[in-house]
Design a protein around this nucleic acid. Structure first.
Length: 199
DNA sequence: AAGAGGATGCCCT
DNA sequence: GGGCATCCTCTTC
């Protein structure tokens, strides 16, 4: 069943990032349904987190989405070509978000292969935030989309990933965040082939 | 108004 | 394993 608003509005983004492991991400664009199991996430903890786009209360055209009530998509363009998909958490006014870094493909693999220009399923089909967004058809135009609607949502499929099954490590590509770059806010399911390889 | 750089991934060795 | 693609966003002049 679809995760409700109260899943996302909880205060602990680090906990939510781990809770999202084993859940099913679904997109439905033009009747092209694609879904996959979330296997890797990163937490971005608001105005005190130097790696977070909303660090120090930064509020711009782009980051204003992060201040919305938890349960909407925050998608932005990175390096001019990659659309990175995040889920906003916490109550309105507190800019927390979880970056979805990798999923294990489930339904609609044909659409994923087509969108990615690939002929067969390989781990990198949906590993890495840019790759999975492309495979699922998510782009920056979806920033602000409510996950209670029928375009993008997350389902609980009854899988509970135990703490001993989760690898915790530092986030990727945030060296500029100084001391916060070392926070163990990256979460991966142990021994899963579809987690991203970067660093 | 313009410039720098970025929660990356590909393609080539 | 390293360089480069590619363009939007934000900062600063």
């Amino acid at each position: 069943m679809k995760l409700g608003s109260n899943f996302y509005t909880r205060a602990d983004v680090v906990l939510i990032a781990q809770d999202l492991l084993g859940k099913k991400l679904v997109t439905n664009f033009g009747l092209k349904i694609t879904s996959g199991i979330i296997v890797e996430t990163e937490a971005y903890a608001g105005i005190t987190d130097r790696a977070c786009h909303a660090y120090n209360g930064k509020f711009t055209q782009r980051t204003k989405i992060m201040y919305q009530k938890g349960g909407v998509a925050y998608v932005y363009l990175c390096y001019g070509m990659h659309h990175l998909f995040n889920i906003v958490t916490n109550v309105q006014g507190i800019p927390h978000a979880v970056l979805i870094r990798a999923v294990e493909p489930n339904e609609g693999i044909e659409w994923m292969l087509k969108r990615r220009n690939m002929g067969e399923v390989k781990p990198n089909l949906t590993s890495g935030p840019g790759s999975l967004s492309k495979a699922f058809g998510i782009s920056s135009e979806h920033s602000g989309v409510d996950l209670q609607n029928n375009k993008i949502w997350v389902e609980d499929i009854g899988v509970n990933v135990g703490s001993n099954q989760i690898i915790k490590s530092a986030r990727v590509g945030v060296a500029y965040a100084k001391q916060d770059a070392l926070l163990p806010y990256r979460f991966r399911i142990k021994n899963n082939a579809f987690t991203s390889k970067a660093k």
